[in-house]
Design a binder for these strands. Structure first.
Lengths: 346, 346
DNA sequence: GTTAGCACTCTCTTATGGAGAGTGCTAACG
DNA sequence: CGTTAGCACTCTCCATAAGAGAGTGCTAAC
């Protein structure tokens, strides 16, 4: 069944009011906030329909309605509308963002911090990653007679290192010579090509080439570095200031812990990001949608930045399902642009 | 005034009982837990003295005592006694720790995770840092005609990178030649020495040498990479499961946020660690002692690892003042040893 | 110095009774 | 037939009260 125009207007009002007040929205509040020229009784009839359709729910008989995850989704897909950032805000952000930083790492952190601060929620940013990774340079540093540190620099600037052991002592000069040799031989090759080339090298170099191939491969698949900021900001949200109606203190604690664990376990974030559709626009995940990862209480507004297939990363905002989706989308989109510019400059 | 032997025994019992139960300890509980051959009335007399001396306090007239920060400090300094880890636990840890990891980063993370898991609290580990940092290798990668990525590898394996711009186009071959030249010229030098040498180089190379010196200097002062784990474990502690007696929900929220912000702001951690006395044994900070950083509710058990003045880092455990100090000290000490071995192997 | 006894105090839990908010229903209206 | 006014009903929230429980502080005896 499809909603009438007025019902949509009411749903929109409920979502936006609840998002800004964090309290259940009653029929009277809808009338005053929506500007509709109808009585609260009429609204009540429509709200009853919204409830059977599953877009809103009430916690107790006399306590206004709040949106369900389905309600948020309807809002996001059909009612939200565009919201360009105010130009003044865009200027402020651009200015903050282009402060004297020169390291990519600092930029990534800054991007996360800016988004977190402006949304009062957690922000995620991953480092940009190239689709095809090729070797740039090899360096070997002797640490002990039988051990050395193998350093591999990839073409996108990623640096990987690994310890290696020898059956017999090697000195630094030998190692440097080998490294130079490997650098020139293998420069510009991808992991699989290095592996192939390894078979035609002398024994000692072959072992190293295998390790290098392994490292380059790891660089390809690598859990890209993830930055997040704003956990403290998110905790200030009313969702964490006390148990919700019907919720025990323990459940509040669990809810919070789910987010903390999610952020701690980088792979969970990676899994989420990997599951994104390729469409390059901003993507919204509400209540972790079907995936019952224990993140039902959180929503994600996620975007990509960078150059398709060349060097791209993800960024996004995470917070309680009660979130300013419109602002979040606008902000993510804007930061994507800024970050894309940055990557292109690199 | 100095405490009698029995009073110390009572204080010890109160601390240990409170640490394990998280509930105020009454006189009767002290009698049964301590094994003292006196009545509860006698204990009450002594406890009254402990209270005027400031080692314990009670929240309400009829609610047992809990240790004050001073009480914890007394316990830690005089009553705690040694607690070697059980050999079985040590073996387990050693085994966990020496699983197939080859990257330093992974080891640091693992160390933090192990400590956090075993203490149900937050664990901190910093990367090892050399006191004197010297240049190992320079690499320059052209990204655009007018821009390049400068990569500097230090002798301890640290890698730093920075973007640089040129007034006129440079191709990769030129840049590689310059990098090779700089590598051989500056290898093994410290930041100040590179700066001095820069003045005698031709113009173009001088600018780069200055940048390199700058990077090496940054490597020296650098906020060393900080790893933490176990925030989710700490949140499970009863301290965060509900407001304490007399505490509002907001205060609980604030308390938690203080820790989150502390961990987020790496520099706060660095400041704390920098303030440690040089003594190489484990150091305990209770309720942030005099420093009123808003961390009055937390204690730190901190240790160092690595080789004095050569390559050393910090590790430690952070949690509510109600903490198993003895176990924490033993664990930190043991992990220090393991990490020191690791650094020596590097 | 130690102990038994006991009144006292304070919290925590449970019960009770409005006040307030918002609904759902019914009947009337255009 | 959609819309509206009116009103009883339900449920939460808050303050108050009473009783149980725990632990103390004091006093007097050992």
């Amino acid at each position: 069944m499809t909603l009438s125009e007025r019902q949509e207007h009411i749903l929109k009002t409920i979502v936006e009011t609840y998002v800004s007040t964090a309290r259940p929205v009653g029929s009277h509040a809808v009338v005053t906030a929506s500007g509709l020229q109808v009585s609260s009784a009429t609204v009540r009839n429509d709200v009853a329909i919204l409830e059977v359709e599953g877009y809103v729910r009430q916690f107790h008989t006399s306590g206004g309605r709040i949106p369900t995850n389905a309600g948020y989704r309807y809002y996001v897909e059909r009612l939200m509308g565009p919201n360009p950032l105010s130009t003044s805000e865009a200027v402020t952000i651009r200015h903050q963002f282009h402060q004297a930083h020169t390291e990519l790492q600092e930029w990534l952190k800054l991007a996360a911090t800016i988004m977190a601060y402006r949304m009062h929620n957690v922000a995620l940013v991953t480092a940009p990653k190239s689709a095809e990774v090729r070797l740039r340079h090899v360096e070997i540093i002797s640490t002990q007679p039988l051990m050395a540190l193998l350093i591999v620099v990839l073409q996108d600037g990623t640096v990987l290192q690994e310890m290696m052991a020898f059956p017999e002592p090697r000195n630094q000069e030998d190692l440097s010579a080998i490294a130079d040799r490997l650098s020139t031989d293998l420069r510009g090759l991808a992991a699989s090509e290095i592996e192939a080339r390894a078979t035609v090298l002398p024994d000692s170099a072959a072992a190293m080439a295998a390790m290098i191939s392994h490292l380059v491969k790891r660089g390809t698949e690598q859990h890209t570095q993830l930055y997040h900021a704003g956990l403290a900001d998110m905790i200030r949200q009313p969702e964490f200031l006390g148990p919700r109606p019907g919720e025990s203190m323990t459940m509040l604690n669990d809810r919070l812990r789910q987010m903390v664990e999610f952020l701690q376990q980088g792979f969970a974030v990676q899994r989420l990001l990997a599951g994104l559709p390729q469409a390059s626009d901003v993507h919204i995940v509400i209540g972790s949608d079907m995936g019952s990862d224990g993140l039902q209480d959180y929503s994600f507004v996620l975007g990509r930045y960078g150059l398709e297939d060349e060097s791209s990363g993800y960024l996004g905002i995470v917070g309680p399902t009660r979130m300013e989706y419109r602002r979040a989308v606008a902000l993510v989109r804007y930061m994507s642009e800024l970050m894309t510019d940055l990557v292109q400059a690199y």
